[in-house]
Design a protein around this nucleic acid. Sequence first.
DNA 1: TCACAGGCTAGAG
DNA 2: CTCTAGCCTGTG
Length: 264
Amino acid sequence: MLKKIDHFDLKQIAESGQCFRWKQEEDITKIVAFNRVLRVREKGDAFDFDCDEKDFDDVWADYFDLGTDYNRVEELVKQSKDSHLIEAYRQGSGIRILRQELFETIISYLISQNNNIPRIKGSLEAICKKGGFKIEGSNEYRLPAPGEISKDFFFDSSLSLGYRDSYLSKMYEFLADNPNYLDSLRKKSYPDAKEELRKHTGIGPKVSDCICLFSLHHIAAFPIDTHVKQLLNKYYQDGFNYEYFDGFAGVIQQYLFYYELKNK
DNA sequence: TCACAGGCTAGAG
DNA sequence: CTCTAGCCTGTG
């Protein structure tokens, strides 16, 4: 089905560092999420999604954050008189903050610490394959759920997790014992969710913010990793005006982050 | 060889 | 409270 979507650029989103299970296959972007596989192809000024209307409305519209008014973000950026941000926005205005599945996001960002993107993707892929749960009608595997794996599952050097293996092991065990935990997280405010997530071994301020932003959609979250830290020192020596972007700081962070990586 | 990669923990001060 | 060594592993 064909859809026109504003502020939507597949390449920019794929390279914005939110998602580790998007794959580029020639002119098709293959998205693995919610235990499904979605193929998208650009067609002129529209996008061709290989799903029906109902699937799109039920699952993907929310995933792509179509309910958020990115025109308002655009106005905010343009009125900011922040020349660096305006340039960053010019190059990354097609970025959206995805609403990703909570469990998978927690696992992904536990792996992400002190790590690089290819290795993060490789670890996730290896975990999914080792789990062995194939997604119907595709060659992709879904992430095994808590309770579906053995106790020593992650202590396996072929997964390339390094010291993060015990973090994942603990998280899986915890969630298997606390089946309502994720729902309770979804109901919390941004500060409460951030604090709650930090109680787990392996989740510090940055990882917690990433989960809040890229899954729970707390747009005020502003994850500070090594690149954002550098960019803040470089362009915002007098301090970054978080108040001005109140409620949208996370989107702004994405524009700045994307620009920084792209022009390095 | 060595730093560093989308940080965090644990322990010292 | 703040500060930082050490941590798995792959890459250039």
